[in-house]
Each structure stands twice: as structure tokens, then as C-alpha cells.
Computed example of a mutant assay.
Amino acid sequence: MAAAGIAIIGGGPCGLTLARLLECKGIDYIVYERDESENSNRAGGSLDIHAGTGQHALREAGLLDGFKKYARYDDTAVTIADKQGKRLLQMGQNRDAPEIDRKDLRQILLDAIPKDKIKWGHTLLNAKIGEDKRPMLEFTNGVVLSKFKLVVGADGAWSKVRPMITPAIPQYSGKIFLESKVGHENPLYETTVSRVGPGMFLATGVGKSIVTQRQGDGTYRNYFGIQVEENFFRNGVLKLDVEATRRLLLSDFYADWAEEYQDLIRHATDLRVWSLYTLSTEDMNWKSVPGLTLVGDAAHLTIPNGEGVNLAMTDALKLASKIAEHGIEDVNRAVQEYENDMFPRGIATIAEGRRMEKVMFDEDPQAFFQALSDAAAQ
């Protein structure tokens, strides 16, 4: 079956940013996305888009004005508190890193890409090098494609493209976030509005944290950060029965936290496990493989540190620029130069993620407060 010059595996912010940039440069591509349609509701929470990275990529893609229609500049503030509810620090006001809901950013990008350039319902099952020495892609829907000039893995933490390039495997950090929502109908909604307001509210204790963040529709998402073994929520100890989860959090993790935090647990709904994995800085050294490359989390998965989507969009911009510079016929040279430029960024963000993980879950919460105070002073 014939295929486009470039296959982008994954239609998240990174893959779609790359697609839009290639569209602007007149370079042939197709995006293969696992969601069944653009209306699939798998979009996540809120993202802060930084001026020099994510916003820069959107400007180069001709989409910055569209972004600003959705950007929430009043949600840049971050309030830090201890487990007893004492407010210790506020930072980030007027920072040029406005929030936008992931679904809104996705729609901005989708609207800027021709409909026939995205193949929905294509979950990559297997990827290998074919007899012609080019990547061969097998999807769960039975479609098999090859003869690409380049396959770009923009398929996230558990990339199916990555094993063709490097043996690197994400390692569990020992931490998870349990995500829940506070919708308009939630009995705790008005209290959350008055307590948190715009932006993000972050409380940390000994080895635990709670993050509350306002979304574009005025609702809130809570993230309960705890340290448990990797399969804690899969091996029968707990299968995310909501009531059982609430009881466990209240009795074993947040029993000595202030009532305002315990109320967040009592009214938690739509609980979802978000296990934190990371690649190693040593993984950022693979030898370039003809016809293949990685961007975003597929390349440099890290513990959340505020840079993830911004670095991913920067990857997209750098790769598209290199392909335009060298042309599709010399795409392997473009990839090699892109990867040599990307490795230091990947190393830096993985190291920063590890540092943020350490202070956020430190036995001495003051380490986290001090780290954020230092950041606010810069």
C-alpha cells in the first residue's frame, strides 16, 4: 500500500504541531492517531504554554492568534501551602505561560490541518524494519504500511516506534498521581472556588502532595500524589473502587492533613491513576537510525516539571525546520542534526524532572518550598 513521505505516529500536541509545520512548509505527511475521531474525549487537563518554546512553535505555525483566544493568563498563579493549609508562597502571577485546556489546543491544531491528512482509528500494533530496509507499520485495524521516507514516533511514553531506535524503557519513579474532578455540580465546588480561585494550588507534606488546578470551563482537577509500589492499583490491593480509594487515602495517606484537603478526598469523583515514569539521562545517546526518529515523550519522557508539552512542541519545530532545510530526499541528515540538537534538551528536562520529583516528595517539605522560592526569585 502506498504511503506519504512522512508518517507521524500520534495525534497529540507534539504530533499535530509537527503536522501543521510540515503543512506550512509543503512537505508530505500523514498522521496516524489511535482515537476513533477528533471528537474522542481522551484529552487530559490543562497545559501551560511558555513564550520561548510552545508559543514560539505556534507562532511559526501561524496559530498564535488562535491560541490567544483560549489562553488563560489569569491562571498562571501558583499558591503553595503545607498540609495544615497554611499558605506559604504565591508565585507566577503575570508570567507569560498562560494555561490552555489540552482539548482546546488540540482543536486549534486540528482545524489547521487538512482532514485527509489524519487517519483516525489507527493504533500502532507493531513496527519493524522491512526487507526494503524501511520501516513497516502494522496497525490493530489490519492496515500495514511501508515505504515511508521517515517515521516519526510522537506516540508518547510507551512508544511503539522507540524500540526500533533504542532499547531504552521507561522506569517507574515510585510515585503516582490519583486524578479526580470537582465539577460545577460537586458539593465542594463553591468552597474550591473560594479556596483556590484561578491558577494552581499545591500542598505538600512528608512524601505526599495534593495539586488543585482550575480548568477552562471553571471546574477543577485534583491530583493526589503518593508513593506506592508499581502495581499497587493493579494487583488486587485496590481496583479503583471509588469508596475504597477514598477510605484508603483518608486512613493511610492523608489522615493527618487538614480538613480542607480531606474534603477533597471525600468528594473525589472520576478517579484515574496516573503512574509517573521516566527515561534516564543515559538514554539520550542513541545512534541515528535511517528513516526513524522520536519526538516529545517518546524521546525524553520525564517526571512532570512544567516543560513537557513545551519541549515536545520545540522538538516538532526543530525537526520540521531541519527537514525543510535539507529536503525530504536528505531526510536522514535532517534527522541526525535534529537528534544531536535534541539530546541536550532531553537530558536537561529528565534531570529537572528528577530534581522536581525529589523535592516535591521530600521527607522535609521545606526543600520543596525552598526550590519554588528560588524559582520565583529568578
Rank of each mutant, 00 (worst) to 15 (best):
K181R: 15
K175L: 13
R95G: 06
A299C: 12
M200R: 14
H122S: 05
E243S: 07
A258R: 01
I265E: 00
G15E: 00
K175S: 12
A157W: 04
G156E: 15
I80F: 09
K318T: 12
N222Q: 12
V295L: 14
T166G: 10
S288F: 11
K175F: 04
D241G: 08
V309A: 15
P167G: 08
E138L: 05
Q171M: 07
R87D: 04
N41V: 15
I303A: 04
I210C: 00
A3F: 07
T293Q: 02
G216M: 03
G142I: 15
N141Q: 11
D74R: 14
L105D: 04
W257S: 02
D263E: 11
N94C: 15
I169H: 11
F139D: 10
R34W: 10
V161H: 04
I118T: 10
I226V: 15
E138Y: 04
A203Y: 05
L137F: 03
Y172M: 08
K83A: 12
L58Q: 10
A154S: 11
D101S: 12
C14P: 00
I328N: 01
L311P: 02
D315M: 05
Y223Q: 02
E357D: 13
R72N: 04
K117W: 00
D116I: 00
S275G: 02
Y223P: 05
D362N: 09
R246Q: 03
K119H: 10
D155K: 13
E179H: 11
G153E: 10
L301Q: 03
E185S: 14
V193C: 14
A71Y: 00
A71V: 01
L319V: 06
I226H: 12
P163R: 12
E363C: 08
G197C: 10
